[in-house]
Design a protein around this nucleic acid. Structure first.
Lengths: 146, 146
DNA sequence: ATTGCAAATGCAATATTATTGCATGAACAA
DNA sequence: TTGTTCATGCAATAATATTGCATTTGCAAT
């Protein structure tokens, strides 16, 4: 399992402020965990990480916090795994997709307007009003190929 | 919850033969359930459906059967829900995506070479060797819009 | 048809993930 | 500082998923 840092350090306090959610201790704890883990992680994974740091947080609370963060778009839920990660493209509007390395677990976010347009077209042709779309690409990242 | 039939009737025996998996009673039961339910359904959902028909099947067995079917590409697993459905585009090669109506639950499969190409490009640019990609579009289907 | 082996299934146990209702406590605006 | 609203803790439970091992079954070779 490789490990490398490819993401900017996050000011979790700033993130919380931006989200306009209440600033609470548990929310800061979850944000810090997400920032430090720096990889998609399950709610119970966050709980375990916090335990190792000698702090506790109720699993239900973690679920609720992640749900709130997801609605506020400061985290994303990765549907294939049910894991969560901080949104790393804070300034971009529109749809985000994910690239996932099944070897080292590295997950990068991407934003592709072309893909977005294409999927709107597919939906339209089928008579659907598109409300959400989800893309997850998995494979071997550049580090693991070698 | 609307209901309508938009898919061809499936010869489950034929499907099994095509898959080259062993022809067993439990597998036929699962295939029949998937064909009759005609909508993505969870493993336990299949078990409940079978119970209503006065037949039983171990949940573990259902999981294993679905896994085998998935590997043989005669069913698809819908990642966002963890539900399974028969593959309805048997002749098409390559990537399949899904359109899902969050109102009536209708789920259609689609195949878009353009989308496939685009995602390969995204992966390449990020240095990934693409091995799998998953697309789920959700919204309101034409029936539910009106 | 019969046999033998590999593969599939059943069963039991358990892990993981997720949700709900209600009582208590904390944040923050007035 | 107070009051209301929202967040959290706790307890219970549901739903989803996996593993190991014993037994049975499909099916190919004879």
């Amino acid at each position: 399992m490789h490990s490398f840092v490819s993401k900017p350090i996050v000011d979790t306090g700033e993130l919380l402020k931006k989200s306009k959610l209440k600033d609470t201790q548990p929310r800061r704890m979850v944000l810090e965990a997400l920032a430090k883990i720096n990889m998609p992680v399950s709610p119970y994974g966050i709980q375990k990480w916090l335990l190792k740091k000698n702090t506790e947080l109720n699993a239900v609370t973690i679920y609720r916090i992640l749900h709130a963060f997801n609605s506020a778009c400061i985290v994303h839920r990765h549907p294939c795994s049910g894991h969560f990660a901080l949104c790393t493209l804070p300034e971009q509007k529109g749809h985000h997709g994910f690239l996932h390395c099944h070897s080292c677990g590295l997950t990068e976010e991407f934003c592709s307007p072309a893909l977005c347009t294409l999927e709107h077209g597919i939906a339209k042709k089928a008579g659907f009003d598109l409300e959400n779309h989800m893309n997850e690409i998995s494979g071997l990242c550049k580090h693991c190929k070698s």
